[in-house]
Amino acid sequence: MTDLSIIFVNYKSAGLLIDCLDSIYKETTGISFEIIVVDNNSEDNSQEKVTRLYPNLKWIQLDYNAGFARGNNAGIPHATGRNILLLNTDTIIQENALYKTVALFEEHKEYVACGVQLLNTDGTHQISGAHVMKGGLNTLLPLPYLGSFVRYWGYKLNAKIPSVTTVAAITDVDWVIGAFVMVRKDVLSNSGLLDPDFFMYAEEIEWCARLKKQGKLCLFEEPKVIHIGGGTSSDFYDEKEWNNGKNLWNRRGRQVIVSTQLRIRKEFGIGWFLVLTFFYVIDVPVFLFGLIIEKLFKGKEARYSWQNFIEYTKNIGVLLGYFFKMLRNKPFFYKVK
């Protein structure tokens, strides 16, 4: 049996994918692996570019942009490896990281899924996984003004910082960043695949919650992988800045808000979903009041603009438009326009 099946979801990112494949073939020895690429209807010459250089990989062509969860779900049934790696196209493999990860994963059978130390392009550490906070309260931190209030009380109450940026040896986590998630294929019959309701963002967190019912999850320190960040999603959202969900008043932020609340509903239930939705909604008047005060006293140096407020308010309107669908928790593809 193949040691590792590597699955990519591609959307107009042939250049990034080729760079990653180059690094895999250059930096990987000691294990057998296969490459599976699922293309989310790029409608460009991605397939020609990639398969010309790597003709032996499996290319699965979808006829619509299925997003991250459905894209990976389309690839997983074609995997023959005993371990499956969901790998972003905007990653670079270093120093035989795949062999090291597989070796550690097979040594530590108590873990059903794992990640590695992710690095920024300058070599500094990047958030690689996290611990779950009750009810997902940490998802409120990006809220304008109100998020600062939540952060203040978090520090006051000595709340544990959920994000894991620096991995120490083997670090247990509740979820692994979706850029690099390795899972044992034999656990998927019980955990299920990624939830197809998600288009983009938060799907790996919800999936990890189900995987964790089968066993522990961890991050390994020794294997290191560069994660450029936002490669595919920036193409879709036509944005140059990778803000990792901190900006809630643009198109990407709209999807982040909806996907985050979808995850809260699925993982924590109706009660927490209602609580967090209340915070998103109440932040509209809080945002307005805070912005008026800042504009009066700081003028052009205010953190936010009137356009930020208007777009955030529109995004909350979109969230409320999905409110009853999420409440009922019936199958639906939450791809936000």
Rank of each mutant, 00 (worst) to 15 (best):
M1L: 04
T2H: 10
T2D: 15
T2V: 15
V9E: 02
N10K: 03
S13N: 15
L16K: 15
S23A: 09
T28L: 05
T29E: 15
E34T: 11
I36Q: 02
I36N: 08
N45M: 05
N45L: 04
Q47Y: 05
D63V: 01
N65M: 08
F68K: 14
N73Y: 12
A74C: 10
A74V: 05
G75E: 11
I76C: 05
R82A: 00
I92G: 09
E95H: 14
L98Q: 11
Y99A: 10
K100Y: 04
T101W: 12
A103S: 11
E107Y: 03
E107T: 08
E107I: 05
E110V: 01
E110Q: 14
A113K: 04
C114A: 13
Q117C: 01
L118T: 11
L119K: 14
T124P: 01
Q126M: 06
Q126I: 00
M133P: 00
K134V: 02
N138C: 01
N138W: 03
G147N: 02
V150C: 14
R151S: 06
G154I: 06
Y155G: 13
T171I: 07
D172I: 03
V181M: 15
M182V: 09
V183D: 08
G192V: 00
G192T: 04
G192S: 04
E204L: 01
E206A: 15
L211H: 15
K212D: 08
K213H: 08
G215Y: 09
G215T: 07
K216Y: 05
L217S: 10
L217V: 07
C218P: 02
F220P: 02
E222Q: 13
T232K: 10
S234M: 06
S234H: 04
K240L: 11
W242K: 02
N243W: 01
N244L: 12
K246C: 00
N247S: 07
R251K: 11
G253E: 08
S259M: 06
T260I: 00
E267N: 05
F268M: 02
W272T: 12
F273G: 09
F273A: 09
V284A: 09
V286M: 14
F287M: 09
F289P: 04
I292G: 02
L296Y: 03
L296I: 07
K298R: 15
K300F: 13
E301S: 12
E301L: 08
Y304R: 11
F309M: 11
N315Q: 03
I316M: 10
G317R: 06
V318R: 01
L319K: 07
G321K: 14
Y322Q: 05
R328E: 10
